[in-house]
């Protein structure tokens, strides 16, 4: 029996990027903070480009702790939603075109969010990655870490719990 020919790489990339773009681009607050997502396969890295309006302590200067928290929370929700929707995106059950039109599926809701500040946020770009430690039918646990210049010197870390949308 002949094996099925693999999908052309540009088709795969286009589908995944369109789905991610729709997921992120539909949220005004993500746009307001200027957060972008880079994708390598299914791995996401969030990027927060520095802007003057993100400053929380003008004397140091340092990023606002609330901005850091919001950046971590956004990274957590998008990464969790992304892993939750991945199979439907890949199977074609979820059409990127309907997503782009703003018809987003229901997303997880934050139950609680705990952030530890490890270093003051410098006035430059920040990065974050999340790891879904458990994704159940009703609840999910997610860990998030943010850093700036050095990946092994995190500026903040967070643990969050989410209520999963009903299928």
């Amino acid at each position: 029996m002949a094996r099925q020919k693999p999908e052309p790489v540009q088709i795969v990339k286009q589908r995944r990027d369109a789905a991610l773009g729709a997921l992120v681009g539909g949220v005004p607050y993500i746009r307001y903070l200027g957060i972008q997502f880079e994708r390598h396969g299914d791995e996401l890295t969030a990027v927060l480009p520095f802007e003057e309006k993100l400053i929380g302590n003008p004397l140091l200067p340092a990023l606002h702790g609330g901005v850091t928290a919001a950046f971590l929370e956004t990274t957590g929700i998008i990464t969790l939603s992304w892993s939750y929707l991945w199979e439907d995106i890949e199977s074609g059950k979820l059409d990127p075109d309907t997503l782009t039109k703003g018809d987003l599926p229901r997303l997880p809701k934050t139950i609680d969010f705990t952030v530890d500040y490890l270093r003051s946020g410098l006035p430059r770009d920040a990065y974050a990655r999340a790891r879904v430690t458990r994704s159940g039918r009703r609840y999910a646990s997610v860990q998030v870490e943010a850093w700036q210049d050095h990946r092994d010197r995190p500026m903040a870390q967070a643990t969050a719990h989410f209520l999963m949308p009903r299928p």
Binding site: Y29, G65, G66, A69, F71, E73
Partner: peptide, 13 residues
């Protein structure tokens, strides 16, 4: 509905 991050920022401030 407003993003949780904005509420966090307000409470932190």
């Amino acid at each position: 509905v407003i993003h949780g991050g904005a509420v966090s920022t307000l409470m932190d401030t």
